[in-house]
């Protein structure tokens, strides 16, 4: 067992993922694609900028997917690999990527669920490979910084001190 770790999402990761999400949107005619990690943090968005609060959205997406995972297990299924939420105007299609990330596609009546499902199926394998590379890199201890720190630290020197000062300011004086 371990303590809490950090993982990093580099600019080159964002570029690879952004290209895949753009392709998905072009092929499916969906509006927006988002990637959320299972702990509830937004990783990337592509397409039309969301009109909702992305932090809240990421939290609820992770909770939704996790709760449905447990439902699947109650039924004896290993997982529900994808979920669909239908609205009057907008709908969501959610799919698992490499068991650590959730792909969310937001679409409206300009496309169909069938086309979105088909294109998502096509892209999940590519996204899984990108994340597998990232996790392998993190596992090998290469998470620190994408060259940003050059010291093996997750953040550059001085970050922690400044963040602590900000905590004192925001939460009311030094502890």
């Amino acid at each position: 067992m371990s303590g809490a770790a950090s993982w990093s999402f580099r600019e080159e990761d964002a570029a690879r993922i952004g290209a895949l999400l753009d392709r998905l949107l072009a092929e499916s005619s969906a509006r927006t694609a988002l990637l959320v990690d299972r702990a509830g943090q937004m990783l990337a968005t592509a397409g039309q900028a969301p009109q909702f609060d992305p932090i809240t959205f990421a939290t609820l997406t992770a909770a939704d997917f996790s709760a449905n995972d447990q439902l699947a297990r109650l039924l004896g299924e290993n997982e529900f690999g994808a979920l669909f939420h239908q609205g009057e105007k907008d709908s969501l299609y959610l799919a698992d990527v490499a068991r650590r990330v959730i792909l969310v596609v937001l679409f409206d009546h300009t496309t169909t669920l069938g086309l979105v499902k088909l294109r998502v199926r096509g892209i999940v394998g590519d996204l899984s490979r990108v994340f597998a590379d990232m996790f392998a890199r993190e596992g090998a201890g290469g998470g620190g910084g994408g060259g940003a720190t050059g010291s093996g630290r997750a953040v550059e020197g001085g970050f922690v001190g400044e963040a602590e000062d900000e905590i004192d300011r925001l939460f009311g004086g030094p502890a």
């Binding site: 809490a4 770790a5 950090s6 993982w7 990093s8 999402f9 580099r10 600019e11 990761d13 964002a14 570029a15 990690d37 702990a39 509830g40 943090q41 990783l43 990337a44 998470g143 910084g145 994408g146 940003a148 997750a154 953040v155």
Partner: peptide, 15 residues
């Protein structure tokens, strides 16, 4: 697990 997102320049921690 803290996420350090160098692409969007964000650090997120979960308590």
């Amino acid at each position: 697990m803290s996420l350090i997102n160098y692409a969007s320049r964000e650090v997120n921690c979960k308590l």
